[in-house]
Nucleic acid binder design. Structure first.
Length: 438
RNA sequence: GUGAGCGUAGUUCAAUGGUAGAGCCCUGGAUUGUGGUUCCAGUUGUUGGGGGUUCGAGUCCCCUCGCUCACCCCA
């Protein structure tokens, strides 16, 4: 085992055939999001560190301890994006999308980076599929976004996911609640966990979803965020729920759900899955009506979500994976005195007609070539020997059935792309040992 | 950053402190142009790295690195 080079901690190599499943998942996202007229945006994976500090929030864990930050050659502080909403908002402002027809609907697919200790479902380089809707403050925008998310997950075959929804209200609601929560918890400060004591000052709302049993106990009888909502915030959330109900979408109101990023307002949501271990959040998202303004872009409301693609693939239903088994290629083998060059030429001819094939480029025994084709999972082999070269035909063997026939070279592509190709094959004599074993 | 468990061939795993092995995988072959089963042959290791104890260490001790899971937090 050579130890010279290893993956960077927390990164991983995605290999075939699994990469085909990733591509299929991404194709499904493009298809579903496209039906809602979302268009793809590609932002850089590096940004000025300040962008994330400003948008995600100084008191958050992401900024406080999880950013992959480094200095470039001129000493500027750059950060590998820990999430993409900030980048999208930045791009929105920087490219003058405020003057595009509103709302602007964008989706992205790509790697994100957080400097954390890796564990199940958590990597330093992970992948998100996300969507952002900018310029529509309507509660029905929240509803439609959730429906789109739901549709995507349904098309992947998910059935048992739990959608958690909550509201954190507008700025006024949050301030009022923050004061009331701090007032309630301060006398109990000493009973809180160390982390929560710190959060009492930096980000008290986060204490709400603390996993510590002690903290849970202290939260008994704590004021409810819903009681601090302004009438407008309450109205917004009521309408979101009414919309979801009207569309028959299943969800659960989880009033302790508080998301970790500072920019969230009003609706927040999370989708969790069993089977992911401790990191069970598959999707997170919410409304961020103040973010664009904070980045200097004016009062443009926004809402979006991010799907953890790595986690998604961990629990992807088999029903979906089965639909994307890649087609098996055909192998072309030169036989006897025929040069592998002829196999290459035939393969090229077929490829130009849309046939997926492998050319056997090394001269070896036919037995060996057949064995290799079989091990590559090939189902059809084309044999090109002296007889075939002279007659302008090719011997086609189906490895699954063991059936074999002779096909005119000109007809090959048509036969190979046909579903029941061997029905078309000139039945002729079957192979030397012709018997079918399967 | 904290804690626990684990590091032997590409892979899954063996080896009472006494010569580092097996299955799988991979490569070739079993006479003429036919795969899967079978048979034969072959390649692969500084036992993660360093130090210590010992006549002798894959095995015991220490350090270090890596992996995994959990905490924190999140996708």
């Amino acid at each position: 085992m050579s130890e010279s080079y290893r993956r960077v901690k927390g990164t991983r190599d995605l290999l075939p055939p699994e990469t085909a499943v990733w591509a299929a998942v991404e194709a499904t996202a493009r298809s579903v999001f496209g039906r809602y007229a979302y268009r793809e945006i590609r932002t850089p994976i590096i940004e000025h560190t300040e962008l994330f500090v400003r948008s995600v929030g100084e008191s958050t864990d992401i900024v406080g301890k999880e950013m992959y930050t480094f200095a470039d050659r001129k000493g500027r502080s750059l950060t590998l994006r820990p999430e993409s909403t900030a980048s999208v908002a930045r791009a929105f402002v920087e490219n003058g999308m405020t003057s595009w027809p509103q709302p602007v609907k964008l989706f992205y697919i790509g790697p994100q980076f957080r400097y954390e200790r890796p564990q199940k479902g958590r990597y330093r380089q992970f992948h998100q599929i996300g969507a952002e809707l900018l310029g529509d403050a309507s509660p029905l925008a929240d509803v439609e976004l959730l429906l789109m998310l739901n549709r995507f997950l349904q098309e992947l075959g998910f059935e048992d996911l739990v959608v958690l929804v909550n509201t954190v209200g507008d700025e006024a609601s949050r301030q009022a609640y923050r004061a009331s929560l701090v007032g309630f918890l301060t006398p109990r400060r000493d009973a809180l966990s160390e982390d929560s004591q710190r959060r009492l000052e930096s980000n008290p709302l986060r204490i709400l979803d603390s996993k510590s049993p002690g903290d849970r106990e202290q939260l008994e009888g704590a004021p409810e965020l819903h009681d601090s909502l302004t009438p407008e915030a309450r109205e917004h959330f009521d309408q979101v729920r009414a919309g979801l109900d009207a569309q028959g979408m299943a969800y659960r109101v989880e009033n302790r759900l508080v998301r970790g990023l500072d920019y969230y307002t009003h609706t927040v949501f999370e989708i969790v899955s069993e089977g992911l271990g401790a990191q069970d959040a598959l999707v997170g998202g919410g409304r961020y009506d103040g973010l664009v303004a904070a980045l200097g872009g004016g009062a443009v409301p926004g809402i979006g979500f991010a799907i953890g693609e790595d986690r998604l693939l961990d629990v992807l239903p088999e029903s979906f994976q089965r639909r994307f088994v890649p087609a098996s290629p055909t192998t072309v083998v030169a036989v006897g005195e025929v040069s592998p060059m002829a196999a290459l030429a035939l393969a090229e001819e077929l490829r130009s007609q849309g046939v997926e094939c492998i050319a056997e480029l090394t001269t070896r025994s036919l037995k060996s070539s057949m064995k290799r084709a079989d091990r590559h999972g090939v189902e059809r082999v084309l044999l090109l020997g002296e007889e075939e070269m002279e007659s302008g035909r090719v011997t086609l063997r189906d490895l699954r059935s063991g059936r074999q026939g002779v096909v005119l070279r000109d007809r090959l592509a048509a036969v190979l792309t046909s579903d029941d190709f061997y029905e078309i094959v000139n039945p002729g004599p079957s192979g030397p040992e012709g018997e079918e074993e399967r």
